[in-house]
Design a protein around this nucleic acid. Structure first.
Lengths: 187, 187
DNA sequence: ATTGATATAAACCGATCGGTCAATGTTTAG
DNA sequence: CTAAACATTGACCGATCGGTTTATATCAAT
């Protein structure tokens, strides 16, 4: 398969950028870490920026699929599924090598709103919010969009603080905070 | 004054790093942007890392002083002061050139927990939380530390999302979310 | 007037930056 | 078997990286 080579590269670039940072990881090191020659990388992507955007698209897909799978496996009841989002977050924080969120890091390093990398990060966060809106609506929230925006605040805050403080304790705080908000937003 | 020169440099470096990012802004450009020659910079600081840590310490001081001033100016009632934190956040998001938080960006670019820059960021966020704990205690919260941790989640989430989406709308969401949490945590 | 501290510009260091190029395999399809 | 298509290595490009060095100003205190 010919597309698979490209996908392998993006997958490995994803891990490398997540570990090493975007500006901090040069293309030479990236070629070594991915096992793909620099020439081949530039055969697939016209620039480092292009490659980064591709890794963000892959990560968006992977992360949201994973989140949906975990939430659906953990709970059937709609209200419980809203809470299960925060159980899943806790699982994520627990993973070895957890170092915040690739999109938060991307938007930190590429700060201009009109930059393609910044936009890709914004789109991902928007899609996470849309998913929460669906869960909130299924749970019968008075205002599903509003609850989803509130939970988004908790999610992003939890990611940032889990990277700085104790992930377990932050996950617990996020779960309990979500509980308060969900209780207040459902009949 | 001799220390003032150094402080001027750190102040200007702060703005330059905030606009340009840490890895993305080299020392040559920094010398131009601060108006201080590279030789003088390295006379005051032994490395770029040292300078960055100094800018974070200055920013910690500046930001917390500003926050406390704004909160105290906006409200006298303890409960109202907890909410005023989020009014202040809204003011901050509104400032021209707002681009997320220097500490979140620093921890994104220097991810290792034992890195001095990462630690400085963690300390700042801890101090913000300590300030909220004091406000929560004054407001008579059942569990002041717990409420402060909850509000910290909202604060960090709001900063991240204000950088990605519409700052005004995010500030409003954060305020309203805080309201729900404060109501649930006070007698 | 002289000294010592501090500032400066500018050249310089080896390493690395993002990106290209030419030459040489290695696959794969006709 | 052959030829086009793709991957690879490794040298190469000018620019910039963090940091140093040298030599020249500036200035306050003796």
């Amino acid at each position: 398969m010919s597309t698979s080579k490209r996908d392998d590269l993006v997958q490995k670039a994803l891990q490398a950028f997540y570990r090493g940072g975007f500006h901090a990881l040069g293309m030479d090191k990236l070629a070594v870490e991915t096992g793909v020659s620099k020439t081949s990388i530039y055969n697939h992507f016209s620039s480092k920026e292009d490659l980064i955007v591709a890794t963000l698209r892959l990560r968006d897909d992977q992360f949201r699929s994973w989140l949906i799978r975990r939430v659906e496996a953990r709970a059937r009841d709609p209200r419980a599924r809203l809470l299960a989002v925060f159980d899943a977050l806790g699982e994520w924080f627990h993973e070895p090598g957890f170092k915040s969120c690739l999109f938060i890091k991307a938007s930190s390093e590429y700060q201009e709103r009109d930059h393609p990398i910044h936009s890709a990060a914004a789109e991902h966060k928007q899609l996470i919010q849309v998913y929460c809106t669906g869960l909130a609506r299924a749970a019968g929230a008075y205002d599903a969009e509003n609850l989803a925006r509130q939970l988004s605040l908790i999610i992003e805050g939890a990611i940032v603080l889990a990277h700085l403080h104790d992930p377990d304790s932050v996950a617990k705080d996020a779960y309990e905070t979500a509980q308060v908000l969900i209780d207040a937003a459902l009949p």
